[in-house]
Design a protein around this nucleic acid. Structure first.
Lengths: 199, 199
DNA sequence: AGCATAAGCGGACTTCACCCCGTTTTCTAT
DNA sequence: ATAGAAAACGGGGTGAAGTCCGCTTATGCT
């Protein structure tokens, strides 16, 4: 009765997944996120449509997979990079730095992040994001906050939701004039919020 | 050259819109939000599909229209109802009361609220919701907050996003045991947040 | 009332996500 | 090496959103 190893992923599966991700990245670079269709991707990768769905489940799944690597790298930085983002700085400093970095990250990956949404199966509260966990830890380090879990949820929402929900411009080019404005706007707002909550 | 009256909406159009909304409400009551399809709605209302799209633009548009009346009533309450929600109470009290009422409202209309999302054309930051405006006004009344606009955006996100984004269970029955828990959880968190920001 | 015209209507058509299931490939145990 | 099982593949099928355009009807003007 040895579970634990439900048999590793088959070699062709791995090969195909990577090929599909590469192809998807190309398509995004050439035509933008919403020109990536399941049929189109399959055809361009010379694979069956069924394969694409088997690998990623849903369309949103592709974008989640694409984001995954960058997301890991980002959290890595936040958890063990140099201060003020990483350990070593004052927790409040770290919270502020985290927020600014996160705004930057989400803006950078804006199109893909938004494409991760799945109308049918959205994120559940029980599945706290890395961001929420990180904020929670730093809040606790920064001093006693009542209702820690609740506040962590809401600060996470305050940080991420504006980019996920409220602002969503075409933002074709990375050099858009209001791109930097937006980043500064939300970063400053975050800093203000944290300073007032923690003072 | 008199614009201003681009000719009022035709009588049949009005009739059909109301008929469609009534029918949609029935279908929602009977089978739930995501069984409401454009074809189904058109057929049940004995109208062409083109008509449904002409009236509401997109599927999400139907739900926005359905929410509209209730949303107005809610804002009415918040702006001119009895304290602590309405005018007369201390601004901080009002902010807290508003948040609790809003959580309640969003939970009550959860299914429809979520159905208002539109993958292709999401809300723009330039279109600040009533909630954002209200929060902004109360914040200003409550005392000088630096970065007023930014903080208003983020508090709005903190209040609404958890219900829009992070928690989304089927929540079929209104008497679900964790429904009340959720309302209390988010309401308390909101109160904590506001108290700390404003202290 | 009668007419011109803009608004509204209907439903076929297109596109896309997602499902299904018979066929093929890889893996493992012998 | 080989057979048998499990996993992966392929692509046609389905249902739903959204578009198009020729037809119909309300409305305002005379």
């Amino acid at each position: 009765m040895h579970f634990g190893k439900p048999r590793a992923e088959r070699a062709d599966a791995v090969r195909n997944r990577e090929h599909l991700l590469r192809t998807a990245r190309q398509m995004i670079a050439e035509e933008g996120v919403d020109k990536v269709t399941m049929d189109g991707l399959a055809e361009r990768a010379c694979l069956g449509k069924g394969t694409v769905f088997r690998r990623f489940g849903t369309r949103a799944g592709i974008f989640r997979a694409l984001l995954d690597a960058d997301e890991r790298a980002f959290q890595e930085h936040a958890m063990s990079g140099p201060p003020p983002l990483g350990p070593g700085a004052d927790p409040v400093e770290r919270l502020i730095a985290y927020g600014r970095a996160r705004v930057d990250f989400l803006t950078e990956h804006h199109a893909i992040v938004r494409a991760c949404f799945d109308r049918s199966r959205p994120m559940i509260m029980g599945d706290p994001s890395m961001t929420q966990l990180h904020i929670r830890v730093l809040l606790r380090e920064a001093g006693s906050v009542p209702n820690l879990d609740g506040v962590a949820v809401q600060l996470t929402a305050a940080l991420e939701a504006p980019l996920l929900l409220y602002l969503s411009r075409p933002q074709r080019e990375a050099e858009s004039p209001d791109r930097d404005e937006t980043i500064a706007f939300l970063g400053d707002a975050w800093q203000t919020l944290i300073e007032r909550v923690m003072r």
